[in-house]
Design a protein around this nucleic acid. Structure first.
Lengths: 210, 210
DNA sequence: CCCTTCCTCGAACGTTTGTTCTAACAATAT
DNA sequence: ATATTGTTAGAACAAACGTTCGAGGAAGGG
């Protein structure tokens, strides 16, 4: 997939917005106005490219015959890139993971859950080692790829020395890091900052039952 | 909201299908063909009614300017009808609750979570009394309205004698009901069938963080 | 410099499409 | 029977719309 020109991303953004607002796609002349383009044929030209690159599908000769690819709608497809378990390293998304599309399982969510965040992925919980985070075997953990964390955020950390993966609330204290289980009744653990490797931020939990 | 004529529901179904298939709404003449209606003005006439009754919104003079109400799309709007807490009765949806639209909070989900089930609603958890079900304060419990439960299903029950609401896995045993916490390490409780009032089935948990 | 490629512009054409109007039919109430 | 209301039918119109074409600008490579 080639890089998109600024004009093309603007058109794509406009399409998304228009579709969300009005519930139907814009006409070519709507795009002309909305993106401050000077001619219908310029839009035609760029739509042709966007279609070739797979961002949308068009029905010829049909007014407003534009269908956005699913990932461009209000619905987001989140890849389930692997499992998270106590004794195993936490999978981290890489360029590879994203390009290897289709193969992995995925999850369809509304923006309501992801809140439009970039770099969102999901991990499936294996085992009951996360019960202190009120997370069960089989739960889906919605993650955002981050390098650092703010105090109070729930993060996935890899404890190097203990060789252990865990989900805890993160608090940076003088000289140490406090990792607090979500279950307030349980005691926090303290770790050397050197020992803590932040693998991502937890932005949601989804548990499907029955 | 009045009853819809068969023609009107057919148009609504066609709209849904068309929108799902093509990603954009049908023209009036598409509806004529798709619903085997003889004239555009008949469609116009019925669309006007559907709009008046709140099933869709139309933009005049705009081709394909039809927007289906959210509940008619692939995205489901689930009402959050109340709170669930240890000592309080569990809210149960009634005809009232459904018709009192707009007032209550709601949640937008994909069919992925609701799996097309009917009578789905959500409750917000108040307090930490459900930690034994691995459910935290603030979590959203996705419920389906049912009268009876199958063994192994997670249900919301009201224990009459104890005056307590709880979420447990349901097992009917000879002469008693076993209510098993989701956290396998915890002991089940046993209850008299007379004492147990099933208020709904739990089909999912959603926890939004940060 | 010329040539190619990518992109822009404006206009024109032929359909598609929403709208409107009149007439008529059916069901129901007066 | 007459009036009223709800619904259908077909035609015609004007506007909206996708498409196409020729010309030309901008950028880069030879």
């Amino acid at each position: 997939m080639k890089e998109l020109s600024t004009k093309q991303s603007r058109i794509l953004d406009f399409l998304r917005q228009f579709l969300e607002d009005k519930g139907y796609p814009p006409s070519i002349r709507d795009i002309v106005k909305g993106c401050k383009i000077s001619s219908t044929s310029v839009v035609e030209y760029n739509l042709r490219i966007l279609e070739r690159e797979g961002y949308l599908r068009r029905d010829r000769e049909v007014s407003r015959g534009i269908e956005l690819s699913p990932r461009n709608r209000g619905i987001v497809r989140v890849p389930i890139i692997g499992y998270i378990a106590a004794g195993e390293p936490i999978p981290v998304p890489s360029a590879d993971t994203w390009s290897a599309l289709g193969i992995a399982e995925s999850l369809e969510l509304t923006q309501e859950l992801t809140r439009g965040k970039e770099g969102v992925y999901a991990l499936k919980v294996k085992g009951t080692s996360m019960v202190d985070a009120l997370i069960n075997d089989g739960d889906l953990v919605l993650m955002q790829h981050v390098e650092t964390a703010e105090n109070g955020e729930m993060v996935a950390v890899w404890l190097k020395r203990e060789k252990e993966a865990t989900l805890k609330k993160f608090y940076l204290e003088p000289g140490r890091i406090r990792l607090q289980p979500a279950n307030e009744e349980m005691k926090p653990i303290y770790a050397d900052p050197e020992d803590v490797e932040i693998q991502g931020k937890v932005i949601g939990i989804i548990r499907k039952l029955e």
